[in-house]
Every structure is written in structure tokens, then in C-alpha cells.
Design a protein around this nucleic acid. Structure first.
Lengths: 345, 345
DNA sequence: GTGAAAGCGCTAACAA
DNA sequence: TTGTTAGCGCTTTCAC
């Protein structure tokens, strides 16, 4: 039985310095500071001492001393859902590639939660604060949000928005309207004529743009989509499932359904399957091209979005020099046709 | 044009105190410290001042002053994959429920990465450090890992392992062996006789236990599984896809395949579908019951694991008083029979 | 190249 | 109830 060390304390920089026989300043220089001038001999002793003591820099102390923490904090609204949030995955990967400490803060779903989460994130003083997630067009908390973020930038932090177009910060946005339009053109070309759209909450910007783009695209092909063909619910699979049922109960012809995201498309697909394949098979298209759906049958026609490069772009923006005007980088997707929308006839 | 404030600084506690006309100590008491005795009048003034200044506590400074940070840090090895890591999701949710700041650190896939990540996490001095992810039985870095974690506990931090059974720390483990055994019993009962197992890396503890449990279960039913019926590859979908092809190329009878996790089962399912449904349909079973697969066809028979409550249990352990001996909490799953394993005949 | 010393923003004894 | 005073561990001028 070894003596139980009753209450060890973490080794501090001072301990390392002492053991190495140098000053804290020197130890700091070799352990953290840019590899400036420290004589090789001392350098080695410090390194040895650090290893021997199992020294780990106290990041909090560094943050205090330096005035700003290292790393990226991603604020994602809502919980990580089952269809792995591709944005989060992309950012984690991108941050990892650059060796940046990554912190995920997930805010609740209420708009006010976001503001609160931003303030909490501010507390950590990360060098880059990224916000991801949809936003409501009529959100009353936007001024507060902008205010909090603005404050953060004024304090020297950086802010990058992903998906949150229209706010005065560097932004990576997806070409939602364009994608919707392209999808419409594609489906028309495949021979479909009677459409319905399964969309999310009325005021959500993302779904709204995708829906509008789709309608535009149909219009360009000479097709008018009656307003009652756009069904609205939550932005998720279950809502889509329910909405599809509602849609098919109506006495109308539908040969293709466009869901504004893949999760919802999955709901549609599942509903269609559950009710049994009746003769007139209905085509389904989504938006996002999330990987978790690649094994679904039938394979889903959707708008592919390059998540990884989008995340990379966001980091590039946020880590680069700050530009006087907010930059907006629009990421374009492209339609991928798969089995869920077979050519008609 | 408003004057550009050239270089604002974040409001500090001292600023708030000054504006409120009280001492920093008092301000600290109302803003952070337990709601102790502060005269209501002062209390209000501090609150007002804070709001007016847009004050956010500098968490790093608090951590330094208090000697320990608040919140939970989850160290997940590997990247968040497409089949949303259920452990991560569970912990995020559980932490959120308790209002605990949550940080996710994702380590690389090499064992050595884990150790490094632990040291990095130590730097943040979180009150609770959780490790999730599989572990190799023959991992040479285990002593280093244990050492780093031990150190952390000695310094006053808490460590909880999820899934990493067998290390001297509080642990939440899954009843892998049991689940495998139950699955075997279930399949036999359904009438299956000729089995194959698609498993992951030979030295992975999780997959090994599940495989052994399955074999035990078969044995208990009087069935011996030839060693060559256990195919081994990576712990993921793609490997399973390839292994299934390899398996079916052999001149043997197989009427059911047990994959050691759902992601792999998905690979099996997809391969089976891709090659076209030939007459003798092969049953498939998985393990985990991840939600992302709930819409797969045929619905997957699998071992359900209660992720949410497991995460809750982990937090409960880690946040509660430290017990002299490491606690191990075993979470049991149960077999859920779905369409992928129809009763034979 | 190296060290002394002054902070960074906050908390917590201890007095008052 | 409130303020004073030391720190917490680290970085960073600024001399030497």
C-alpha cells in the first residue's frame, strides 16, 4: 500500500520552472510562447521538468492573462438530433484539422435561449464564435442577439454565422433559393407536373427560401403551384410524416413531393411506405444530402450541400483578418437525382 | 456616422461595481456568489449596472480564482459520425437538463490521441471529465491514459468513463455480453440456425464482448458457431458492407447475420439489398438501437440500449460525492424484434 | 537570453 | 451587510 497522497495539487508553471532551475518567464516561453530565444539547454530542462511533473497548462489562467481564449466555439440551437447535424460535424472536423480547441454549446430551441447562450459563450472569450441553425424572420430577439454579438466583436472576438443570412456579421450561407429552383427544374424535366411542398415553420428563413425557390422554378417552367399545395409544420421528420398523411387525404393529384430538408423527406418516404405502395407512386425529393440517409430506400433525390467545405470556409473567414464590411460567402449546392424520383414514363 | 469606438473592452466586474457604487466583492456576491446577504437596494443597482454595461462574467477568470471550472467535458474519440453518436447526444441532453455548461472535445482515432486530448481537457479544469468511446484490449497507451486521468482526480477533478469498462474510475458500462447472449437466444427461438457474425476490430472490447456473448448464447442453445463464421473488420458500416460480400461468396449456408452494432447492421442490410433479394432471405440483427435507423427497411431487430438514462447515470455518478472505490454501473439493454428477423417458417 | 514585477478579472478570507 | 486585501496561474513588458 502506497501512502495515499491526500490532496495533490496540479503542477503549476512555477513548479516546472523551479524544478528546471529557471524563472517562470523562461518556462512560459518554452512551454507556450512562440519558440523564441531560449537556450537549448534550458529548453530541454524545462521540457523534462514539465513531463516529469505531468504539467498541463492551466488554460483558464492563460485566457485570463492573454485576454482571450484559444479555439472555436460553436453555438448550435436545438439539440443534436438523430440525423446528425451536418453543420456541427463539419465544424468539428474542420477545427480538428487545424488543431483548434473546439467547444460545442447547444442552446435551447427558444429564440431567447440563443441570446442567453451567446452571453454564456462570451464568457469563455473564444477567439471565434460561430452560430449555426435556422432563424426566424419575425424573431423579436434579433436585436438582442445582434447586440450581444456586436458587443463580442467590439471586445475583439470574431463572429461567423452559418446559415443565418442577413445579420451584420461574416456569414456562410447556403444558396437555398437556387437549390429550390434547380430542384423544381429537375423534377419538371423528369416529367412531373403535380407538386406539393412539405415545408417547415412559416417564418423559418431556410425553409421559406427553399420553398420560394422551388415555386419560382416551377413558375419558370410554366407551372403554378396552388398555395394549398404547400403544407407547413415543424422542421422535422415527424411533422413531415403527419403532413404527408394530411396531404394524401385530400382529393387531389400529386405525383411529386418536395420536402425542404432530408429529415422531412424521410418522414414523407416513410409515410408513403407505411400506407403501402399504391399504384400511382409518388416521387420524393429532399434538400441537404445528409449522409445518414444514404442507405435509405428508395435512395433520395436531393440537393447536395458541401458541408465540409462550408465549415472550412467559415473557419477561414473567422480566423483570417477581419474585413471592414461583413463578408457573405454563399455555398451552392447541386441536385442529385436518385431513385426516389424516377423519370416519369 | 457614429464615432467608431476604436477598441472597446469587455465590461469587468469592477466596472459594474463602480457604476453601482459598491465594492467588487459585493458585485461578485450578487452576480455570481450564492445569493447571500446583500441589501436589496444594492442588489438591484448591481443588476442594473450589469445589464447596462452588458456585463458577462469572465468564466476563465472565475475558473482561475475558484481553482476549478464549472461544467462537464466529454471526450469522444473519433469524429462524430453520420450515425449520430448516441452517447454524445445523450450527454449533451443530460447536461442541458441540469443547466451544466457542456464542452465536447473530439479526439483523433489513435490511442495516443486520447491521452493527448485528456491532457488538453485537464487544462480546462472542468469539474467532470467524461470519456466515451471504445477501447482496445491491447492498447499500449492505457497506462498513460490511466496516469493522466488519475492525476486529474488527484487534483480534485472527477472522471467518469462510459463504455470503457475495466479502468479504475467510475464507469457506466453496457451489458454487452448479456445483450449478445439474449440476441442469440431470440434468434434461435425465431427459428434460425445458421449464423454468421460481422464484428469489428479484433481487440475492440465492445465488439468482442458482444460477439462472445452471442456465441455463448448460441452454445446455450446447443449451437456451435464455427470460428470462420465470425468476420472482422472496422467497426463501421462500410466494413460491414464489404464483409457481407465476402461472407456470401463462400459456399456456406447462412440464414441470419448478427452485426455487433447498428451501423454495421446497416451495411449488411444495404449489401443484401444491393445484390438483389435472392430467394433465401437472410435475417439481420444489430446492437445499439440508434434512432437514425428507425426508418430503415426492413426495420432492424437490435438490442436496445437506453442512452439517455445511461448519460444521466454517468452525470449522477460524476456529480455526486466521490466514493472510495470506483463505482461501476452496468446498463442493461433488451432485444427488440422487428422485421429484419421474421420468424422462420 | 533571462528574470523581476506588474498585471489579467475574479473570488474568498478576514475585518470592520 | 460590506469593503479590503490577498491571492489564483499565467503572460508580458522592461530592464539587466
Amino acid at each position: 500500500m502506497a501512502e495515499e497522497p491526500p490532496l495533490a495539487r496540479a503542477a503549476r508553471l512555477a513548479d516546472v520552472a523551479e524544478l528546471a532551475g529557471v524563472s517562470p518567464a523562461t518556462a512560459s516561453r518554452v512551454l507556450n510562447g512562440g519558440h523564441r530565444g531560449v537556450r537549448e539547454a534550458n529548453r530541454q530542462r524545462v521540457l523534462d521538468a514539465a513531463k516529469q511533473l505531468g504539467y498541463t497548462a492551466n488554460l483558464a489562467a492563460q485566457t485570463v492573462a492573454r485576454g482571450r481564449g484559444r479555439g472555436v466555439t460553436l453555438l448550435a440551437s436545438g439539440m443534436p438530433d438523430d440525423y446528425a447535424n451536418p453543420v456541427t460535424a463539419g465544424v468539428v472536423a474542420a477545427a480538428q484539422r487545424r488543431g483548434l480547441p473546439f467547444t460545442l454549446i447547444s442552446a435551447g430551441t427558444e429564440p431567447a435561449d440563443l441570446v442567453e447562450a451567446v452571453n454564456m459563450a462570451r464568457g469563455n472569450r473564444p477567439e471565434l464564435l460561430m452560430l449555426a441553425g435556422g432563424r426566424m424572420a419575425d424573431d423579436a430577439t434579433i436585436p438582442d442577439l445582434v447586440d450581444a454579438l456586436q458587443r463580442y466583436e467590439d471586445e475583439g472576438g470574431r463572429v461567423v454565422l452559418i446559415t443565418q443570412k442577413g445579420l451584420p456579421f461574416d456569414t456562410v450561407a447556403y444558396a437555398n433559393r437556387q437549390g429550390g429552383r434547380d430542384m423544381a427544374a429537375t423534377l419538371v424535366e423528369l416529367g412531373y407536373r403535380d407538386f406539393a411542398v412539405i415545408s417547415g415553420l412559416k417564418h423559418g428563413l431556410t425553409q421559406r427560401e427553399r420553398t420560394e425557390g422551388f415555386i419560382d422554378g416551377l413558375a419558370a417552367a410554366g407551372i403554378t403551384l396552388p398555395a394549398d399545395r404547400v403544407l407547413i409544420g415543424q422542421f422535422d421528420r415527424d411533422a413531415a410524416y403527419a403532413l404527408t398523411g394530411e396531404l394524401l387525404r385530400r382529393p387531389i393529384e400529386v405525383d411529386a413531393i418536395f420536402a425542404v430538408n432530408d429529415a422531412m423527406a424521410l418522414g414523407v418516404l416513410t409515410f408513403l411506405r407505411d400506407r403501402g405502395e399504391t399504384a400511382p407512386r409518388i416521387a420524393v425529393a429532399g434538400f441537404d444530402d445528409i449522409k445518414a440517409l444514404r442507405d435509405v430506400t428508395p435512395a433520395l433525390t436531393t440537393v447536395h450541400l458541401p458541408w465540409e467545405s462550408a465549415a472550412d470556409e467559415a473557419l477561414r473567414m473567422g480566423l483570417g483578418p477581419r474585413s471592414p464590411e461583413p463578408q457573405v460567402s454563399v455555398i451552392e449546392g447541386h441536385v442529385v437525382v436518385r431513385e426516389s424520383t424516377p423519370p416519369l414514363r
